[in-house]
Design a protein around this nucleic acid. Structure first.
Lengths: 155, 155
DNA sequence: TATTGTTATACTCTATAACTATA
DNA sequence: TATAGTTATAGAGTATAACAATA
């Protein structure tokens, strides 16, 4: 790993300075990607802010769970996920059923109304991204997805 | 473009549903990347929040400019960049000099103090990313940088 | 009158800390 | 006593709209 990280993409061994630049560039790109995220957030329905959409998405992908696990998957503080969950529960998009094994916990479960919201979100995202990435090959989109997933798991 | 966007990466023609999934996956990944950004934001100096760091970075990359151009490059509303600029100017990291050609504008210019802050930021980012991405090849980091840059320009 | 910037206000996300209920 | 979750509070980012100054 150390040896590899000392090689440039297209050439021979490089300096520590060039190494730093590569990582600094990644930091810059991640900062800049905020604009893309803001653009996507703007297309959400008015009563479904990004945090609420994230709750629905995680429950759809990983199935029913307790708040502690949702918190872990969202990588935020539990106070944050708790508020987002309250938001989606108040709108009837998830059900909260007391955990039979531990009365302190409730099982969070996506319901049909939540699935409908999720379908609407997916549709809007798809329309927006299809338009923006019209000149991307599917392979490139997949490559970006793969690298982003790997980046997340590296943290 | 349309023909291409109807092919899967590793197989034959696919359905509209699978197409949507690819874009929805990208939306999910972009949402999830927020956790990485929060991690990186945590390593910033206390008096240099992400918005301030972004101002310094853009001025370093693109040279002196007026607020209107900075706003464009940061892809935010001018009210936002104006506040960030005030923040870094109050700390003496940039100079604001009246534009000779238009008294409404001021030229924003990174000064030595700002460059010192920027060097510190770069150092912290590099340390954090070197640790987190220890098992990444330089080629993969470069590939991610390239795709992220392309994503930004597609919006 | 149009443009550049600033500021007031409001909303969302986030974390820390104090608190409640249950194990 | 320890853990799951809630809520109060505060800080940061952002956008809209009203405003000031200059072109």
């Amino acid at each position: 790993m150390v040896a590899l990280s000392n090689k440039m993409g297209g050439g021979p061994v490089t300096t520590q300075t060039a190494q730093s630049t590569r990582y600094e560039e990644l930091a810059r790109q991640l900062t800049g990607i905020g604009a893309v995220k803001r653009d996507l957030a703007r297309i959400l329905p008015a009563d479904c802010p990004p945090g609420a959409a994230a709750v629905l998405t995680v429950l759809d992908r990983h199935g029913e769970m307790r708040l502690s696990r949702l918190t872990e998957l969202m990588a935020v503080d539990m106070s944050v996920s708790s508020r987002h969950v309250t938001h989606v529960a108040e709108r009837g998009w998830i059900d909260r059923e007391t955990d039979p094994g531990d009365a302190r916990c409730r099982i969070l479960r996506l319901n049909p109304a939540g699935r409908a919201v999720l379908a609407e979100l997916g549709s809007r995202y798809t329309v927006a991204l299809e338009r923006a990435l019209a000149d991307w090959s599917p392979e490139d989109v997949d490559a970006l997805n793969t690298l982003l997933a790997r980046l997340r798991s590296s943290f």
